[in-house]
Structure formats: structure tokens, C-alpha cells
Design a protein around this nucleic acid. Structure first.
Length: 656
RNA sequence: GGCGGAGUAGCUCAGUUGGUUAGAGCAAACGGUUCAUACCCGUUAGGUCGUCGGUUCGAGUCCGACCUCCGCUACCA
């Protein structure tokens, strides 16, 4: 069997639901997978979930579930979301599956046999209460950063000889210029590796959740180490025909897990067991949601399926089409050079501009003309050279960008063909040709239809449902193969065109503004008409940004506020905002740490009366215990403005 | 404070190895068209490419310093 084109996404950590970011990577990988299938290549598209690691166990406990139930539930949620997003994965791997556990253990064993794993002592200051190791330099006053007691522990653990691969790694990167992409990221990796790689501790004491180390089940394999192996585990390695799938053709991911893990550790691990390296490792940048442009509290939405639902509701397009719209917005905006702001407004702009006005309308007007001028069938005529050129150009551009994984630019190339078409229609003016009974008319209409047919193929990896609908309206079966795009046989003459129907109904900004308003006002007015005289509060009052949750006087009474006098003040060493205050509250002495150094110097505090929370649970900051909290207003810089009695108050007076 | 990223047209962004009048889309103004989802096409306007220095015949592009913004994080119970 021919080697499959193997595409992966990262496996997603199952501590929350999938959001726009994880969907971005997954959808982009899906576009890639669908494209390669259309090229006629056998494809293997893998995604999955990362379920080991202590944090998962902790999250499960918090949710009152066993780790198994917890991960079963969330893995299912990821799967459901991806399927709903029309992600065509061939395999969904979970790192708790036997195939992954076995592969990890074998991998470990081979590395060990090859001499790349050695036993060492992992030493450090161990904070028992938080189960974390700290370096000497992390400690504050001999305690952990959280202020807990630490003890010197040297735990025997296993290390991976990452340092041994430094040179080979650099050679490989050098010899394969497209191994790491984009280039700016590659350079980052090179300088990272040149700084020197340190061996990595790859086991941990067994917390009862994770993959036991072969031959020593008091240890588990470090979660990052096992996670990477999923890519190989899914191929069936080392059994059977795993080499039909491996090496991976492309590992897709976001930038934060690129340099240290996928571009460094993972290749070194593979070298260590003598298995080929992936062909391409690609990192995209992030979507940001700056200015809180998209957030639930603002009534905007970032959960992909909710976003799709919202688009469908707002525009009146079919819900499956709305999924495509989200996919398009992700593909079109895939960030490369830097983070991109992903906003609801931008999604609307893409919808109206690219999809409704350009693509949808081009189909609509072409079909309408075909019905009026040439009897509603694909004419048997010549495609004009201009149109042929445009189609070839769009396709080769699409391919070129796809080769370098710039999905956003490929997407633009597809739309470029539509932009050409709209200009072409204007220039050739079929309505004028029709009026003059010009013999060129069928040629022009066939050319127009050819552009649409090609566009249907080009957008298919990105918007499979919309492509199907385009094909249906063109009266043709879906384009299956990339090679059919632009071919004459893919546009059989005589096929009956369907009645045009807007795939992407235009979003009217005016209407939208109105509906937004009514949406907000509706519930209120509804309630008033239903129950005009009653003051019954809603059943479940929800805290919101506009109306902070109310508390009762009893709640407030729990907080004891007292007037205190500052007798000493000194900066906390190693901190630049913290001030250590010695206070007298009535007869009692207290020490409080406060983040007020931005606005105050020690000498201007001494002797001053301030207000403190008297019955707050003590807490240690930077190794210094704080027995309370001072009250202060927050200025525009985030600095503190202390509250003081307006005139001298009795020592230790209560405040209410 | 640390780490990471970014500062190019009103907005969202492109700008390959430094090379003539710095681009696209949206928004705006004007004009055209009528097949179409009040759409499409064309024209115009709008930028001292964050600031200041440096290298160079020549810098948005390279170097240095600084300023601003964002994300994560740390010490604002």
C-alpha cells in the first residue's frame, strides 16, 4: 500500500471544553486532510486527547469523578465538537488507551536499550503540600514561593539524554529547510538548540494516574514525554504496516508547544529509537481576543458551535452552512506572522463580503442569467481563454500556498477566482450580448459557470457543505478530485441548472442592530407584560458585569474592619510591589503585607492610621506572613490609594 | 519584575534575500451598470511604515537605545 499522507493535530489536554483556539488547529489540519484526499492521496488524519498527568487526576477529583469517568466524558466532548465542525479525522487517539500505553512503554524501553536513558537523582526542595520541586533560587526565606515548608529531597528518577542530540538536530534542521515552519520559528529553534540542550527528567513518582515506567511502577512517564508518542502509537508502531503511515507528513500545532517539544524533544526522541523524523512541523500563531471584543460577558461568543449557531440565527443561513462559515473564518484568518485578533465583527465582515456578496452572489447572478439567456442548462460552448487562465492561476496559487501550509493564502486564492469572475461578468456584460443576440453569449456563460465549478472544487476542503450546495445548484455531482478542477469534462454540457437559492443570505447590518436591541429588551418587557404588578425576582439571579451579585447585611457583617496604626514599614525583599507593615490594632500587634509600593514609601506610612480587614485568614507572600489586608482604592495604574479615617480615630476602632 | 508577541491607511492585515511613486480587503466619497443576495465594476481620497540614533549609494526591511500596547507569569488576601 502506498504511504499515507499523515496529518496530526496536537492531542488536547482534557481539562476543559474545546474552544476557538483548539478548533483553529483542528480545522486547519482538516482543510489539509481534505485537500490531500482530493489530490488522490490516501490520508491518515489523527487527532485526540491527552489524558495523563497529575492535573487531569486533580481536575477529576475536583469534579467529583474518577479520572477515567472524567476523561471519558471530556474526550467525548472533544470528539463531538470536532465531528460537528465537520472535521474528518480518521483516528482519535486517547493516551489512556492500551495501544498508547504499550507504545510508550516500548519506546521507553528501546531508548533505554540504546543507552539514551539513565538513572539519576532528581534533587530539589520539595514542597509536600503542593507536591512540587523547587530550585534553590526559587526559595524565599527558606520556604517555597507559596510559603510552605520545604524539605530537601533527592528522588531517583530517569533522564533522557537530550543533550546527546544537539548536533544531529541542528544538522537535520539545516539539511531540511522546510522541516520546521514557518522560517521565523525555525530560527528560534536553532538558537534555542545552540544555547545548549539539557537532559530531561522523564519520570515522576507514581501518583496513581499515568503510564507506569516499564520495570518500575513506582514511577510514571512524564506526561509530555508520553504525549508526543501518540503520533507514533496511532500508526501501530512497531507492529505490522506502521510504515504505511509513518513518518508524519505534517504535525500541526500552535506556537507555544513548538520550540521545546515538537521541534526539539520529539525529533530527539525519534532519533534515539532510530525512527524517521516527521517531514514537516508547523506552528501557527494565536488568535487573541483583545479589547474583549469577543466574550460571553459582552454577549459575544467564542465557543465554535455557539458561534455557528449565532451566525445561523443572525443571517438565516442553514446551520450546516454556518459551520462552514466558522471554518472559513478560521482558515482565512490563520495567523502566521503574529497573533491575529479574532472578532465577531470580522467574522461578520468575512461573511458578508467574501461569502454573501462575492461568492454567493456570483453563483446567484450566473445561474439567473443562465436561466434567462441560455435555457437553464450548461451550454455547449468554448470557455474563453481569460477565464481558463484565471482558473489555472487560482488553482496553482492555491497549491503553492498549500505546499507551504499557508492555508489562509490558499483560501484567498480561491476567493480571488470569484473576484475575477465578478469583474469578468461586468466586462463581458452578458445581458448586453443577449440584447444584441451576440454569438459569444454561450461562451461567456460557459466561462462563468466554469469559474464557479472550479471555485466549488477549490473551496471544498474549507467549506465542504457549501461546496456540495454549489454543486447541487450547478446541477452537477460534487467535484471529487483536484485534477478535475478546471477540466472541461467536469462541466458536462446540457446539465440542468437548479433554481438559484442564496447559500449565504446577506446580513443586513441595520436589521442586525435592531434585532440586537430587541434581544436585550425582550426578556424584560416580556416579564413586565406577564406580571405587571409583581416584584417577584427572577428564579435564579445570575451575577453579571452590569449587576454585581448582591450580598446581605449578614454577609457583610462577616467582614470585620478595624482601624490600625502603622508603626513600622519596610519593603519586602525580592519583591517590588510588596511592603511589610507592622501595625497596632488597639492592644494587638499585627504584621500585614500589602502591594502598595507603587504609590508609597515606608517613611510616609509610619504613624498613619489605615483600615484593615481584621479577620482575614493569614497568608504568606514571598515568605512573609500577612495577617490581614489593608483597604485601598485602585488608581488608573493599578496602584493602591490607602483609605484612612478622615480624622484621628480611637485606636483599634471598628469600621462599618 | 520575568518570559513571549506586536507596533504599516479609520478598521483587519500583506510586505520575499534592504532597491524606483509602500499594497490588499473592509469602511468613506464620487461615478458606472442592472444579470444578481440594495449586489457587482471603476475612480478618488487617506500612511513622516511607534520614536531617536546608526550601518548603507539606498531601510518598513539590518543594528542599537527608548516608548506604547497585548498575552502569560510572578509579589498587588
Amino acid at each position: 500500500m502506498a504511504k499515507r499522507y499523515f496529518i496530526t493535530t496536537p492531542i488536547y489536554y482534557v481539562n476543559s471544553y474545546p474552544h476557538v483556539g483548539t478548533t483553529l488547529t483542528t480545522v486547519v489540519a482538516d482543510v489539509c486532510a481534505r485537500y490531500h484526499r482530493m489530490l488522490g492521496q490516501p490520508v491518515y488524519f489523527l487527532t485526540g486527547t491527552d489524558e495523563n498527568g497529575l492535573k487531569v487526576a486533580e481536575a477529576a477529583e475536583k469534579a467529583g469523578k474518577t479520572p477515567k469517568d472524567h476523561t471519558d466524558f471530556l474526550a467525548e466532548e472533544f470528539k463531538k465538537t470536532f465531528l460537528a465542525m465537520n472535521v474528518s479525522f480518521d483516528d482519535f487517539i486517547r493516551t489512556t488507551e492500551p495501544r498508547h500505553v504499550e507504545a510508550t512503554q516500548r519506546f521507553f524501553k528501546i531508548l533505554q536499550d540504546n543507552g539514551y536513558v539513565y538513572k539519576g537523582v532528581y534533587e530539589g526542595w520539595y514542597d509536600v503540600s503542593s507536591e512540587t520541586f523547587y530550585k534553590e533560587t526559587d526559595l524565599v526565606d527558606g520556604k517555597s514561593p507559596d510559603g510552605n515548608e520545604v524539605r530537601w529531597v533527592s528522588e531517583e528518577n530517569w533522564f533522557f539524554k537530550l543533550s546527546a542530540f544537539q548536533d544531529r538536530l541542528l544538522e537535520h534542521i539545516e539539511a531540511n529547510p522546510t522541516f520546521l515552519l514557518p522560517v521565523s520559528r525555525k530560527n528560534e529553534v536553532v538558537s534555542f538548540v545552540k544555547q545548549g540542550l539539557r537532559d530531561m527528567c522523564i519520570t515522576r513518582a507514581n501518583p496513581g494516574w499515568g503510564i507506569p515506567m516499564p520495570g518500575d511502577d513506582t514511577k510514571v512517564v512524564y506526561v509530555w514525554f508520553d504525549a508526543l508518542i501518540n503520533y507514533l502509537a496511532a500508526t501501530g508502531w512497531p507492529e505490522g504496516d506502521w510504515q504505511d503511515i509513518w513518518p508524519a507528513d505534517v504535525h500541526w500545532m500552535a506556537k507555544e508547544i513548538f520550540t521545546r517539544f515538537h521541534a526539539t524533544l520529539w525529533p530527539a526522541m525519534l532519533m534515539g529509537i532510530g525512527v524517521d523524523l516527521p517531514r514537516h512541523v508547523v506552528a501557527h500563531e494565536w488568535f487573541t481576543f483583545g479589547d474583549m471584543k469577543m466574550s460571553k460577558s459582552k454577549g459575544n461568543i467564542i465557543e465554535p458551535l455557539e458561534l455557528a449557531g449565532d451566525i445561523a440565527a443572525k443571517t438565516g443561513c442553514k446551520s450546516e452552512i454556518a459551520i462552514d462559515v466558522v471554518r472559513y473564518s478560521l482558515a482565512a484568518q490563520l495567523p502566521y506572522g503574529g497573533d491575529t485578533n479574532y472578532t465577531r465583527d470580522e467574522v461578520d465582515r468575512l461573511y458578508n463580503g467574501d461569502l454573501a456578496n462575492d461568492l454567493g452572489n456570483a453563483l446567484n447572478r450566473t445561474l439567473a442569467m443562465a436561466h434567462k439567456f441560455v435555457g437553464g442548462a450548461i451550454p455547449d460552448a468554448e470557455i474563453e481563454q481569460e477565464a481558463k487562465d484565471a482558473i489555472q492561476h487560482a488553482r496553482s496559487e492555491f497549491d503553492r500556498y498549500m505546499d507551504s501550509f499557508q492555508i489562509n493564502k490558499s483560501t484567498e486564492s480561491a476567493l480571488g477566482l470569484i473576484r475575477f469572475l465578478n469583474k469578468y461578468i461586468d466586462t463581458r456584460a452578458p445581458w448586453a450580448l443577449h440584447k444584441d443576440s451576440n454569438p459569444a453569449l454561450p461562451n461567456v456563460l460557459r466561462s462563468m459557470l466554469a469559474c464557479l465549478r472550479a471555485a466549488e472544487g477549490l473551496i471544498r476542503p474549507i467549506m465542504p457543505t457549501a461546496a456540495d450546495e454549489m454543486a447541487r445548484q450547478l446541477g452537477l455531482p460534487p467535484t471529487k478530485l483536484w485534477s478535475e478542477i478546471g477540466s472541461d469534462t467536469n462541466l458536462p454540457a446540457g446539465a440542468t441548472l437548479a433554481t438559484p437559492e442564496p447559500i449565504f443570505p446577506r446580513l443586513d447590518p441595520k436589521k442586525n442592530a435592531e434585532s440586537k436591541e430587541s434581544k436585550i429588551q425582550n426578556p424584560k418587557s416580556k416579564m413586565e407584560t406577564q406580571n405587571p404588578t409583581s416584584n417577584t425576582p427572577p428564579l435564579s439571579p445570575q451575577p453579571s458585569a452590569l449587576s454585581p451579585q448582591e450580598i446581605t447585611i449578614d454577609d457583610f457583617a462577616k467582614v470585620q474592619l478595624r482601624v490600625a496604626r502603622v508603626v513600622e514599614a519596610e519593603p519586602v525583599e525580592g519583591a517590588d510591589k510588596l511592603m511589610k507593615l507592622q501595625l497596632v490594632i488597639g492592644e494587638e500587634k499585627r504584621q500585614i503585607v500589602a502591594g502598595i509600593r507603587l504609590n508609597y514609601k515606608p517613611e510616609e506610612l509610619i504613624g498613619r492610621q489605615i483600615v484593615v480587614v481584621y479577620n482575614l485568614k493569614p497568608r504568606t507572600m514571598r515568605g512573609v506572613e500577612s495577617q490581614g489586608m489593608v483597604l485601598a482604592a485602585v488608581d488608573e495604574n493599578g496602584g493602591a490609594i490607602l483609605l484612612s479615617p478622615e480624622k484621628e480615630a480611637p485606636e483599634g476602632a471598628t469600621v462599618r
